[in-house]
């Protein structure tokens, strides 16, 4: 079956104002709104569109994380995913561990495409897709803003510093999404009801044979340095004057 695997990470919602715990042991997540990583919503939307165009038959979403990730998986099912896989794990999951876990599921599910976000907006690592592609020994097309599939190949436009780069990759491959790839659909109420009946399989890291190694010790979290509050100028002339005084013009 032509299948697409999509990575879904549960993260603090992008609208939440992040606060570091006073003891420096982490950021405050208690009682904070959690959501699907925005790049992963885009990944899922892309997979669904490919399926709707007839390019795939099944969309499977995957998450590695604690039990409370399930609402995000249910949301993904409500968006239109056919099945969900939940690899349960508590504590820190480094990108290399996430990539190894996804690789195990890739071996089981044999997808033609894996779509992940270009970065998770909590740790801002931007590593998992590239690591998965390396371990799988398959192509990667990161930071995608356009994906076209055709007979065993994908043509992907990537947002790079110089502009837009186009690559052709053989399938199967890993794609990571940039913001302009698409605009994710809204979930409709009846779909939330239907999603409750869709299959959600629970696994564990040890059951799939992945060791949860932590190579980076989190020493401390600190708030970033604050900028000094500036001044208001009343018009363009005063602004030019101020910039000249500072030697900036």
């Amino acid at each position: 079956m032509k299948r697409i695997l999509v990575g879904i990470k549960r993260v603090v919602d992008y609208n939440v104002r992040i606060r570091v715990k006073p003891d420096g042991s982490g950021v405050i997540t208690d009682g904070v709104k959690m959501s699907i990583n925005p790049f992963d919503e885009i990944a899922l939307e892309e997979a669904l569109r490919i399926k709707e165009r007839g390019g795939a038959e099944e969309v499977v979403v995957v998450t590695i994380g604690p039990a409370d990730c399930q609402p995000q998986l249910r949301t993904a099912l409500a968006m239109g995913a056919d099945r969900a896989l939940h690899v349960q794990a508590d504590g820190v999951i480094e990108p290399l561990v996430a990539a190894k876990a996804i690789l195990k599921l890739v071996e089981r599910e044999q997808p033609l495409l894996v779509i992940l976000g270009k970065q998770a907006i909590d740790d801002d690592n931007s590593q998992t897709g590239q690591m998965l592609a390396a371990l799988w020994n398959r192509p990667q097309a990161t930071f995608a803003s356009k994906v076209e599939l055709a007979e065993g190949k994908a043509r992907v436009t990537r947002e790079v510093d110089a502009g837009l780069e186009t690559l052709e990759v053989d399938l199967p491959a890993v794609v990571t999404t940039d913001l302009r790839l698409n605009e994710p659909r809204y979930v409709k109420l009846p779909d939330i009801m239907k999603a409750k009946k869709k299959p959600l399989e629970t696994l564990t890291l040890s059951a799939i044979g992945v060791e949860q190694k932590q190579r980076l010790k989190l020493v401390k979290f600190e708030p970033p340095p604050q900028r000094q509050k500036g001044i208001r100028v009343k018009d363009a002339a005063e602004l030019v004057e101020a910039l000249r005084t500072k030697g900036l013009l």
């Binding site: 950021v27 909590d122 932590q214 980076l216 979290f221 708030p223 970033p224």
Partner: peptide
């Protein structure tokens, strides 16, 4: 991390 809203110190083990 978190779009620059926190600075994390890590130690490679």
């Amino acid at each position: 991390i978190y779009a620059g809203n926190a600075i994390l110190t890590v130690e490679f083990d």
